[in-house]
Design a protein around this nucleic acid. Structure first.
Lengths: 337, 337
DNA sequence: TGTTAGCACTCTCCCTATGTGAGTGCTAAT
DNA sequence: ATTAGCACTCACATAGGGAGAGTGCTAACA
């Protein structure tokens, strides 16, 4: 266990390094924080912290830099979460009230605000259910042998897929077909639709199967809309300016591999932090991710996430992410009144 | 007008520089292409090309590099467009036939193929009409005061918007409302809907207006789905490795400012090339864009575009873009049979 | 025992020479 | 018109030499 003084020192080092992006030396600490010890004492203490694995030197005769373990200890025990000023809260609320009353719009706005305020990349997904239920089905003919299957989910999300028909259908036939189907599968999940044993025509069966497939693959093939903002802010950080690193990182973002980089199971209200090497993906070695889920009625869940260098202002990021998630939940409550 | 030899020389310089990314010197040219002249002669000729503004030296005592004007002259008169091997054509066709029969899927695939084959960034939009017509309207209740307006366009595209209601509506009422509206506005454009002078209830008017707005804003607020691939390939090019440049360029891509970077008016079948400083945006100074539009029935138009450094293989890119656009048109013809 | 002053040591960073090589422009001869 | 020859320029790589920041260690001190 660390002595009180060493904890204090670690906190100083983390916060100083977060601010300056420069390795921090013993003298600098003493001067800046007016410590009643000499730099030599601090050096001894630093040595202990280094032995404990919380800080490291980029090279001999350089100051100390927090390790991933150091950041981890910091966020677990040392960090104090910021409090958002009332003005800021008001400003953000205002931005949402000015936006269109759309789930996607809100998610996009949330990503934009997070990224702009924190100078880091942000990813936000619209809320969606793990087991979506059909609200409404419609069939619209494109031409004789091709129809568009439109499925509205209860969560106010619209899926679409084109459907190859076995014989020409008129729009009237399609509408009738959709109406019948609607009666049968409204309110059901993919699994429930599959289980149904009904007497159906060939066409009905085809559409029913397509609907179930579409429902199931909704989250795999065409993932919920997600909005990513401020990747450039992230790449502007000094730790990435070195040529190849920036491209590697971009690869993660472009492939939307972020899913793999963001922890899947975060429980309501909690904010999860993954730091540098803790990521399963090597490309994220230099990044930390702050994530939380937000929820609405009917098991609707969305995600808010901030991606920055490990040298990020954790207190600020956590506070902001937490506030935005509360706000989104609130808005969602109003939306689905 | 340039002499035949100077043209030849310019061609060599462009092609050599495209390959090596190094300024090309007089000796190198003579050796590589076994010219029956000495390097001194070439130097004289290079001097002439430089005076004409087609090539430049990064600094005295370096080889020559093509200027934007040099590339322009090259693509106008010197370039010979590649021919895609039959195998390659087959492979690509095969990839499309394996993909789902969806417009969006095709666009995504086209972007992926372009970017992978050309090692440059690619942007592809799904085909859409400049004046979309309503095919089908549906209203689905989310809760008492909120409904989802779903508009299917004739081009098999689905738009959605939530609608604030003035009083609670049952789903039956909404369905009836949608049916009436359908009869009135099916097949119409935004302008045509606005012109209609009908006797309508308040609710009908609200929905009609919302539909018209949605139709009109479809291309402004929520632009047609577009797929961007391979930004990382672009950023890997040696000309962008220098720190700040990469971020600047990324800014263009992230803001989707590409619209401004890509020429609006390209006529069918033609391939347009915009080179470096010809772009209206300064951040694109080091990039060239090869664009073509492809079209389907009913005035449907989509776009295919490749973005690379000015030092790109124009012959290859043009050939590839042209082939893909022909292929997309062909597929579209089948789709809308 | 914890703290501190002092000191030698280590490295990075920046500046300056200095040489090398690729490439040029010019001139005079062919 | 072409070319050999030559002086010149400039980026780049290499090495040397402070300067400065920071360290670890030792010995003295409260």
């Amino acid at each position: 266990m660390l002595t009180e003084r060493r904890k204090q020192l670690l906190q100083y080092i983390v916060e100083e390094y977060v601010q300056t992006a420069q390795p921090v030396g013993s003298q600098a600490i003493v001067k800046k924080y007016q410590l009643p010890f000499s730099s030599a004492t601090i050096r001894n203490e630093m040595g202990a912290l280094e032995d404990a694995g919380f800080i490291a030197q980029p090279h001999t005769s350089a100051g100390r830099v927090p390790t991933d373990a150091g950041y981890r200890f910091y966020v677990e025990t040392l960090m104090h979460e910021d409090r958002l000023s009332d003005e800021l809260q008001q400003t953000i609320r205002h931005q949402f009230h000015q936006a269109a009353r759309e789930l996607e719009e809100w998610a996009r706005l949330a990503a934009a605000i997070l990224s702009a305020r924190l100078q880091n990349a942000a990813v936000v997904t619209t809320p969606h259910s793990p087991e979506p239920r059909v609200r409404w089905v419609e069939l619209v003919g494109v031409h004789d042998y091709l129809a568009l299957l439109v499925v509205v989910l209860q969560e106010a999300r619209v899926l679409q897929q084109t459907l190859q028909l076995e014989r020409p259908f008129t729009q009237d036939e399609l509408t009738k077909l959709a109406r019948q189907l609607n009666d049968a599968i409204a309110g059901k999940t993919a699994a429930e639709i599959r289980e149904q044993k009904l007497e159906l025509t060939a066409a009905e069966t085809t559409v029913r199967k397509a609907t179930a497939d579409l429902l199931q693959s909704a989250d795999e093939l065409a993932p919920e809309p997600s909005f990513m903002e401020g990747v450039r802010d992230l790449l502007r950080q000094p730790e990435f300016t070195q040529g190849e690193r920036i491209v590697q990182l971009l690869e993660v973002f472009e492939e939307r591999n972020l899913a793999r980089a963001i922890p899947a199971s975060v429980e309501g209200g909690n904010v999860t932090i993954v730091i540098g090497g803790e990521h399963p993906i090597d490309e994220m070695r230099l990044c930390s991710v702050v994530t939380t889920r937000y929820g609405g009625p009917d098991g609707l869940r969305g995600m808010l996430s901030v991606v920055g260098p490990t040298r990020m202002d954790y207190g600020r990021n956590v506070a902001m992410v937490r506030y935005m998630s509360r706000l989104m939940e609130e808005l969602l409550g109003v939306y689905f009144a």
